[in-house]
């Protein structure tokens, strides 16, 4: 039982981070009907920028700000340079293009920062709380992660459900033609979607970096986790992405804890396959959009 609690606690912070990553994928999917497979390569890149800023200034907050700003900008750049020109052609082209961006960004990061894993120091203590004479696998840093994610998700929820821009973005995602006929400038909403996704991805990158090591390919495996969570949630659903992001993180933590951490990608793969076989349209959506 103690083991279970340990693994569970250990899974929470990675779960909420995976939730953020899934959220970034969903935001892009909703705005442009493209899964941005380069999303986490972008996050890796902005996290490296954050690490550089931190090394130069010593300030974690400045580093975070740099990551967020560059995440936003990178999202917009990728949208304008790659996705907008390619989107009208076949879907294969869009998918391949995002993989092109992934390959180029990872290599570019390797050119600048090298291929070895680098430590990203946490802003606050990352050793477990000591309660009742026992060290629990949940640290002040984990708490910071959870609180940050909750705040961010709440803020996004308010933007999407309570503001005109949020309504315009949702309408553009669900039915661009009706949105345009209502006077919404849909193309701007798409850019905004990519920008917000870049922002959310950047937050996820900076938060996850202290829990692992940062290298150009370090986030590849998170891409699989985040994609799994986003697909199980239904790809269109923000709530689904968050819920199944946390769920995926917990399952992976439990399985890794009871067996071996090298199982994590296999677990994600199994979750994905089971979902695609039995509920291909995802849990949080009622559309039948996936098959021919």
């Amino acid at each position: 039982m103690t083991n279970f609690i340990d693994y569970f606690l250990g899974g929470i912070s990675s779960g909420v981070i995976i939730a953020l990553m899934a959220l970034a994928l969903v935001l892009v999917w909703r705005s442009t009907r493209v899964v941005n497979f380069a999303q986490l390569a972008q996050a890796m890149f902005t996290t490296f920028i954050a690490l550089t800023v931190r090394d130069l200034t010593g300030s974690w907050l400045l580093a975070l700000a740099a990551a967020l700003a560059s995440g936003l900008v990178l999202g917009v750049i990728v949208h304008f340079l790659v996705i907008r020109p390619v989107k009208r052609m076949d879907t294969s082209g869009a998918i391949i293009a995002t993989f092109g961006v992934l390959i180029a960004l990872e290599a570019f990061a390797g050119m600048i920062w090298g291929g070895d894993g680098k430590a990203f120091p946490p802003p606050i203590r990352n050793t477990g709380f000591e309660i009742g004479g026992r060290v629990w696998p949940f640290s002040p840093y984990d708490l910071l992660v959870v609180v940050t994610v909750i705040v961010l998700v709440l803020a996004l929820t308010i933007v999407f459900t309570r503001t005109s821009v949020g309504l315009a973005m949702r309408a553009s995602a669900f039915n661009p033609e009706v949105a345009r006929l209502s006077g919404v400038r849909v193309s701007r909403m798409l850019v905004l979607g990519w920008a917000i996704a870049g922002f959310v991805g950047a937050v996820a990158g900076v938060l996850v970096a202290p829990l692992t090591t940062l290298s150009p390919t370090a986030f590849d495996v998170f891409l699989v986790f985040a994609f799994t969570a986003a697909v199980i949630g239904g790809l269109d659903s923000l709530v689904g992405a968050v819920a199944f992001g946390i769920g995926t993180g917990l399952v992976i933590s439990l399985v890794s804890g009871y067996t071996d951490s090298s199982n994590a990608p296999v677990v994600a793969l199994v979750l994905l396959v089971v979902n695609l076989l039995f509920k291909p349209e995802g849990v949080f959506t009622h559309h039948k959009a996936r098959t021919v």
Partner: peptide, 8 residues
């Protein structure tokens, strides 16, 4: 929301 979409 459908109505509010018109004339934003």
């Amino acid at each position: 929301e459908n109505l509010k979409l018109g004339g934003m």
